[in-house]
């Protein structure tokens, strides 16, 4: 994993990579624009690196006092099938319909059966 925080600047290659992961197509002009903007944001944030955090536990959540929020294992009504797929751009029968994904380099989910 790339540690974005530690980077003072960000190069076009990284922006291209992140854009690909997010399935965003960027023109060369956009690439330049976003690289510059992201670099500026990152350098701003990197100011945090000046603080000594050796004795500070990692903060994973904004609400540090809230913990252990559970739900009982009790059934609640689901959406009706028709309701669930109503807003989908495409559907067929009871299913959501999506373009076929040719196994890409990203990931192929273990599909069970």
């Amino acid at each position: 994993m790339i540690s974005y925080i530690k980077m003072k600047t960000i190069d076009d290659k990284t922006v291209k990579h992140v854009a690909h992961l997010a399935r965003l197509e960027l023109s060369d002009k956009e690439l330049k624009l976003y690289s510059a903007q992201l670099a500026s944001i990152l350098s701003y944030i990197s100011k945090l690196n000046e603080i000594d955090t050796a004795n500070v536990p990692p903060t994973s959540h904004a609400l540090t006092t809230l913990k252990n929020v559970f739900r009982k294992d009790i059934l609640r009504k689901s959406l009706e099938t028709d309701e669930a797929i109503k807003n989908a751009p495409a559907s067929e029968g009871d299913f959501f319909k999506v373009p076929q994904i040719i196994e890409s380099t990203d990931r192929v989910q273990d599909e069970g059966k």
């Binding site: 739900r71 689901s78 959406l79 099938t81 009871d94």
Partner: peptide
């Protein structure tokens, strides 16, 4: 083998009608 899903109250029953055990959370 819980009655409901990990983060919402939808049933975990196997072999039901497609997309009949879904809700705003798991969708």
């Amino acid at each position: 083998a819980t009655n409901t899903k990990a983060f919402c109250g939808c049933s975990t029953k196997f072999g039901s009608r497609p997309n009949s055990q879904v809700c705003p959370v798991c969708l």
